[in-house]
Design a binder for these strands. Structure first.
Lengths: 167, 167
DNA sequence: CTTCCTGCAAAGGCTTTGCAAAGCT
DNA sequence: AGCTTTGCAAAGCCTTTGCAGGAAG
């Protein structure tokens, strides 16, 4: 009962080994589809796996440019992302009010939901088992086989509330 | 305990009186901002209030064209929607995987979350108080003042599951 | 009569697509 | 050699913005 809610105040980076495992998963997935691995695909996957929080297509391109001499075209990233999604390396994350698609790493991470500060944009990740259970309960009662869910809580974080008061 | 979960299998239409009340709210809101009412604004608001489920900008334009001789330009609708949001007549609804912005009526409706069939797209609306309570609990524990939330459950509905089995 | 609203057209993001050149196996 | 992948440019959506004419108070 004590560990029902876990809080990931900071989303931790994936280890080098983890990144290597992720790349293997992608290569295997690509091969299974009868497609080919490539330097570009690996670079995009690596950039995505290295990212700590939520990211955009542009973030990936910037990162890749920073630590290699590659300059990957946006269109190419848009073509590679479905592969990463398919291979379960990343997932969509639809942070409300954000323009453009956001993603986040899924590989070797626990499921979590989001608590977003509407003032400063800070994102706290959490998992609350009781909520998960109730969600399954609702779906079942309504005759659905639950496969996925999105839960985003929006509000004002403690420090933003404080700053407001002191004004 | 018996009424903890309410299910709105069908989202019911707003009565004519309700629509009239909605329009009054909009007019008052517009006046408060020092702006002007107009035939176009009323038409957009009426179309939005009459809508039963989730809708897009294009839906509204189509509806207006259908029951009046007005032909409202998209740019105009995009300029009117913030007013409706502000006046709490409608709210954003970010059904995952949908392209383009979606809205739904908020005026004279209860809060609800969504259960979406990933096969046929059916949307069931529900409210589960226990989940709401836990959400507030999470936010509080993490120092947030909760103002809003989005919960969407995705899965396969009973009839889609049946059809699958019989294939 | 003054101010705001609307339609139109153009411009802005983000994303997708067609094509030819480059890269793998 | 035969295939996939990539970069580029163009096109596609959805949405926003500037402007001039029209409506509201």
């Amino acid at each position: 009962m004590m560990r029902m809610m876990r809080v990931f105040a900071t989303n931790s980076p994936l280890s080098d080994d983890g990144i290597a495992r992720g790349l293997s998963v992608l290569r295997a997935h690509v091969k299974k589809l009868g497609l080919k691995s490539s330097v570009t695909r690996d670079a995009v996957a690596k950039a995505a796996l290295e990212r700590v929080g939520h990211f955009t297509v542009e973030d990936l391109i910037t990162d890749i440019r920073k630590d290699s001499t590659l300059d990957v075209h946006p269109a190419t990233v848009y073509r590679i992302l479905p592969l990463l999604l398919d291979a379960c390396l990343i997932q969509h994350s639809l942070l409300a009010n954000a323009t453009g698609a956001r993603y986040e790493r899924l590989f070797e991470r626990e499921h979590h939901d989001h608590l977003i500060c509407i003032r400063c944009g800070k994102v706290v990740e959490f998992e609350f088992e009781a909520i998960e259970l109730l969600q399954r309960d609702v779906a079942e009662r309504l005759g659905f086989r639950l496969t996925e869910h999105v839960l985003e809580l929006m509000g004002e974080c403690a420090s933003c509330t404080r700053h407001e008061e002191s004004r």
